[in-house]
């Protein structure tokens, strides 16, 4: 399939930034959204143009490193991470707009990469458990009802992986 990408380019946090347009041919529907970016970046390097900076790491939907606003939604049209979004979710000939997270607490570092250390500051302000290593009771001396353990694990996933930020709160309500 063919698509047109409209991507936010910004050299650094001082730069004003602008949209750049890249027509891409031969996009396979089996590509992940990030693989489509890989292919585009390869072609940019070949042409001597700066590749687009974007955050990513595990590429299996768990680490929370990937971001991107895709067509006005965080992580695009599916309720998933950008790394788990595939090109089959788009139409042939579509123009796709990609922006960095748009929030003043996440200043842009470069292109689609933003600074998310505000999350660290929240955790370090007291969002941790005060248990030292060693000297703890046997694990089965702290029984926890299954129902609570199950809810906690779902909640933690939603809260801790800010994949779905900002709809995290909304999703959490759905689960509860």
């Amino acid at each position: 399939m063919k698509i047109t990408l409209k991507v936010w380019r910004q050299k650094n946090n001082q730069d004003k930034g602008r949209f750049a347009t890249y027509p891409i041919e031969d996009v396979s529907t089996d590509m992940s959204f990030l693989e489509m970016f890989d292919v585009l970046n390869e072609s940019l390097v070949k042409k001597g143009e700066d590749p687009i900076a974007f955050d990513h790491d595990c590429r299996e939907g768990i680490c929370g490193m990937c971001s991107m606003y895709i067509n006005g939604r965080p992580h695009g049209p599916l309720q998933t991470t950008t790394c788990q979004l595939h090109m089959r979710s788009f139409k042939d000939g579509e123009t796709i707009t990609v922006e960095p997270w748009r929030a003043s607490s996440f200043p842009v570092i470069k292109d689609l990469v933003v600074d998310r250390t505000s999350f660290e500051r929240i955790q370090q302000a007291g969002g941790f458990v005060s248990v030292n290593t060693g000297g703890v009771p046997d694990a089965n001396e702290i029984p926890i009802p299954k129902r609570i353990a199950d809810v906690a694990s779902i909640q933690q996933r939603v809260l801790d992986v800010e994949h779905v930020w900002p709809p995290a709160r909304m999703l959490q309500l759905c689960y509860l």
């Binding site: 060693g134 702290i142 926890i144 009802p145 353990a149 933690q156």
Partner: peptide, 21 residues
Amino acid sequence: NIIDQCVAQGVPFAREYGGLL
């Protein structure tokens, strides 16, 4: 010791209905 440590931290391991691991 690892399991004891992690449970004390609140790691939500799978549990039986009786509340044990």
